Amino acid sequence: MAAALKSNVVNPEVEAPAPRLAQPEPALANTAGLVDAIPLTNASIALSWMPTGKTDHYRIYSDMGSGYGVYIHKADVSEPAFVDKMLRPGLAYRYRVTRLESHREVVLAQTAAATLGGQAPPDNLLNQQPVVTATVAPAPTALPADAVLLGLLSDNSYTDEFNTLHVVGEVRNDSNLDVGQTNIAITFYDGAGAVIGTANGQTILEVIPPGEISPFLITLSRPEGMESYSVRAVARPVKPELTPQLSVIQVKRFEDEAGFFHVKGVIENSGSITARRAKVVAVIYGRGGAVINVGFTYLNPPVLAPGERASYEVIFTYFPKYVDQKVIPFEE
């Protein structure tokens, strides 16, 4: 395990460290106002703060929603903003922001926010309700010249007991280029066919090679009066990335006595690169191969050296008439 961040000033040994732990400090308890933390969707939170001096290098730490006061390195950024994605609905997340200057790492502030949807977190860190923009959409924006339209293989939607709408599906890269910077654009319509709102999200895989498929999962408060929706998926060409080779060793599925559906098993790092933040996405299908639901989780443990194995378990509450499943391991 990497060294813990135990004081307001540390000396980082490397420019971009592996995930490491940062212990909380009582002195930072009143610094939440220095960082704006705003929930964007049921699965993302935006952080922003005022630039400090000539610093253009910041680090973001998160407790990953655990509530245990242990912070893990999430990202290095050069702008005073960061969007944390692929989070769990209705869960509180705590963050710490540091700046790097003169070979020192100085803690700026720590703050907290909760993703939209689901039940409010027990500590009521944020007393915010899901908000959906319900305005008539303007004329569609012209696509960039290098935009790549992704093929929509199938999609599904359902509304849970908290009036949270889940839109899930799969898209395929039918081009001969690696693509990323994906944008899943959803337009909602009322019974008369009028546009009543829009939503945007991303594919779960950040880079989709030629011919490959990525699931997507977008959650938000159900737009009032929604009767139907449309989906458009667009991406941009990106440079191929060298990523860890993660292999599915074992897959089991079962329904428990409480009525939850489990997909669990084992993943192995069969390549030569260490996976730092390994996850799996599980897709369950109905008849004809149509997507029913999509879920994801971190491996346990999330760091996998070459040859090492880790377990996973994805739990679904919505799984009508499932027939098959697919598990995709990847590095966040």
Rank of each mutant, 00 (worst) to 15 (best):
M1S: 14
A4D: 12
L5V: 15
K6E: 15
K6G: 10
E13V: 10
V14W: 11
A18H: 13
A27V: 15
N30W: 14
A32S: 15
A37N: 14
A43K: 12
A43V: 15
T52C: 04
K54R: 13
T55I: 12
T55H: 11
D56K: 13
G65Y: 07
G69Y: 14
V70H: 15
D76H: 02
E79W: 04
A81V: 09
F82V: 02
F82I: 03
D84Y: 12
D84V: 10
G90L: 06
R94M: 07
V97S: 04
R99P: 02
E101W: 12
V107W: 06
T111K: 05
A112H: 03
Q119N: 11
Q129F: 12
P130F: 07
V131A: 11
A134T: 14
A134P: 00
P138D: 09
A139L: 05
P140I: 05
L149F: 04
L152D: 01
S154T: 10
S157Y: 01
Y158Q: 06
Y158L: 07
E161Y: 04
F162R: 04
G169P: 06
R172W: 07
D174S: 10
L177R: 08
G180D: 13
I186W: 09
F188M: 11
A194G: 14
I196H: 13
N200S: 12
S214T: 07
S214C: 04
L217Y: 12
S221D: 06
E227P: 05
S228P: 05
Y229E: 06
R232Y: 04
A233V: 02
L242M: 07
L242H: 03
T243M: 11
P244F: 02
V251A: 06
E255R: 13
D256I: 09
H262G: 08
I267C: 06
A278F: 07
A278G: 15
A278H: 03
V283Y: 01
V283A: 02
T297A: 04
A305H: 00
A305L: 00
I315P: 01
F316W: 00
T317M: 01
V323S: 01
